[in-house]
Amino acid sequence: MVFPSINLVSDARNGVGESPFWDAASNSLFWVDIPARRVHRWRPDGGIATWQADEMIGCIAPAASGGLVAGMESGIFKLQLGDDGSMSAQRLAQVAHADRPMRFNDGRCDRQGRFWAGTMHLDMGLARVAGAVYRLDARGLQQQLDGFIVPNGMAWSPDGRTLYLSDSHPTVQTIWAFDYDTTDGAISNRRLFVDMRQHPGRPDGAAVDADGCYWICGNDAGMVHRFTPQGRLDRSVPLPVKKPAMCAFGGPDMGTLFVTSIRPGDASVEAEQPLAGGVFSFDPGVKGLPEHPFAS
């Protein structure tokens, strides 16, 4: 099997690089480093900008009115990023977590501009079933699902009528599919999509391509997997790091897959995977779909 060439976009050394998305208007890739409380922006000319937040940021998405919508620790915020490196944060909704301490984790907008995001306990090792999934739209913030440890892998089919969602905790490692009502954002018919215990790696962040196939990072296995809409493993792409975290399509023609990663804190990382925490890209041989902005 011939694998695509892997390019190093940024040797970012992120503690937890997450939530990448491509902004076509600025020809930029945005992502976050969760424990560092930072938003990063990379441009193909090599320019990188960074903004510092007051809380950890689990996920971001573009906002139709400008700036970003972000799932953080205490709720969901609207972020404005200044050209001078400043950041202003306006809380759109406060969340009543089921436990403490918790934060938002994976999230993105559906194809109608509703923002969806899940929450998790900060100590993943405790395996607290305290995580929930929320939807923010004109009706406010509403909990849609509970009973998760680490909700992850959120993505929609090209027609928006199927929602994919996973729990990446080692004791779960499952991806589900739901029927999705594009009119009101209601979900139904939860069903098994992929049992990731049958494949290398835990299911982390994901993206859907224009063919409707689901790409998901195999955390701990150093791979990105592509599954067909029927849940069949189509291909696996190895990466030079063990813990890829989330992938996103981008580039001028949406024909590049970007992958963020996690840099473990142990002493062996420099010798075994010196590029851990970096951002990578490769040509997946298929185009992706643009992220829909939050309809703020």
Rank of each mutant, 00 (worst) to 15 (best):
P4H: 11
E18C: 03
W31F: 11
D33F: 01
P35R: 09
P44W: 11
G46F: 05
G47V: 13
T50K: 00
Q52P: 04
D83G: 15
D83T: 11
Q90A: 13
R103Q: 01
D106L: 06
G107P: 04
R108W: 05
R111K: 15
G113H: 09
G113W: 07
G125Q: 13
L126W: 05
A127M: 13
V129L: 01
A132Q: 09
V133Y: 02
Y134A: 03
Y134F: 13
L136D: 02
L141D: 02
Q143A: 09
Q144Y: 07
D179I: 00
T182Q: 11
T183P: 03
A186K: 15
I187Y: 08
G205P: 02
A207Y: 07
V208R: 06
A210E: 09
G212A: 14
C213S: 14
D234Q: 13
S236C: 10
K242M: 09
K242S: 15
A245P: 06
G250V: 14
G251P: 04
V259L: 03
T260N: 05
S261T: 04
D266W: 10
S268Q: 15
V269E: 04
E270Y: 04
P274Y: 08
A276P: 04
G277V: 02
P284L: 08
F294Y: 06
S296R: 08
S296G: 15
